[in-house]
């Protein structure tokens, strides 16, 4: 039963990792940009949530009403102001600029919030659980997983069923020809980053409720998100959810064997998939 429990808990944890990954996957899909500062932006959302909670007294989940639009606005401004200038055939500029951004964000957090770990208090929901066939399932992890499924379904809908998603795919296919359709790719990229950071806002708040975070917490979140994307297969959002679940389950099983093995087991699962299925389990885009 312990093992079943570990697998179930890991699956629910995978929902959080899928949320880390969804924004990363979206950005890569639309503009082939890999954002090294993605994890730090998740942590930024957590700090913003903390600030909102402390100043307004709102429940952390309600703070999303403020944090989501703020993060989306930051995303649009970041893309139009800086990142659009880095896009081209050379992979170095986006990589190094987002890497610089990551270092800046971490030190801004240090300056603004000190190095002490912080956490958001979500009240009773944090400890509430339901019993199911001998397993005790936390409400918060269940909610997180449900939100992850909802977010991915929502992104999938936007991508394949709306004019905005059509524009995303068109720009992703061929930037020049998309411009001929009257699409301003700079604006479309800005919208994509805004959407990605809106998702990141959700991920950051859920992270900040679930565990404590500090200014350097972003690196690990970037890596988890990245691993989920690669395990699932590039360009496949549902695959990303599966990737997150595999990562989460590997971690909880690793922790079950030895607490020191939790993170290592996740990385090893990733490297194993990379070794046997270099394109991930459900690849969609090639190249």
């Amino acid at each position: 039963m312990d093992w079943v429990n570990a697998i179930v808990q890991g699956t629910l944890l995978g929902g959080l990792y899928a949320l880390f990954a969804a924004g990363l996957s979206l950005i890569f899909g639309v503009m082939r940009l890999v954002n090294i500062a993605h994890g730090d932006l998740i942590v930024l959302a957590a700090y913003l949530g903390l600030t909102v909670v402390v100043t307004t007294g709102l429940h952390p989940l309600l703070a999303l009403i403020i944090v989501i639009p703020v993060m989306a606005a930051i995303g649009y401004a970041l893309q139009r102001g800086i990142l659009n200038q880095t896009l081209g055939d050379d992979i170095l500029p986006p990589l190094l600029v987002t890497f610089g951004l990551s270092v800046i964000l971490q030190n801004v957090f240090l300056e603004g919030y000190t190095a002490d770990p912080q956490k958001m208090d979500a009240g009773a929901i944090e400890t509430a659980s339901i019993s199911l066939g001998g397993l005790s399932l936390g409400i918060l992890p269940l909610l997180t997983f449900a939100i992850a499924v909802g977010v991915i379904a929502g992104l999938q809908f936007i991508f394949y069923r709306t004019p905005l998603g059509r524009s995303f795919r068109a720009v992703s296919d061929n930037q020049d020809i998309a411009q001929l359709m009257g699409l301003n790719k700079r604006h479309i990229f800005g919208l994509a980053m805004a959407l990605a950071l809106a998702v990141t806002a959700i991920a950051g708040i859920l992270l900040g409720i679930r565990t404590s975070f500090d200014p350097t917490a972003g690196g690990a979140r970037l890596i988890y998100g990245f691993e989920a994307v690669i395990i699932g297969g590039l360009g496949n959002l549902w695959g990303t959810l599966v990737g997150g679940v595999i990562l989460g389950v590997a971690q909880t099983i690793g922790a079950k064997i030895d607490p020191g093995w939790q993170l290592l087991a996740g990385h090893i699962a990733f490297l194993f998939v990379l070794a046997v299925r270099p394109n991930g389990l459900f690849p969609r885009v090639s190249g």
Partner: peptide, 25 residues
Amino acid sequence: ALIFRLRGAYFAIGTWVIAEVFRLS
């Protein structure tokens, strides 16, 4: 042999994963 399977920017993050594996090990 492992991380050369990742292209471009994903290679970069792959190297970071390796560093994490080393650190945790």
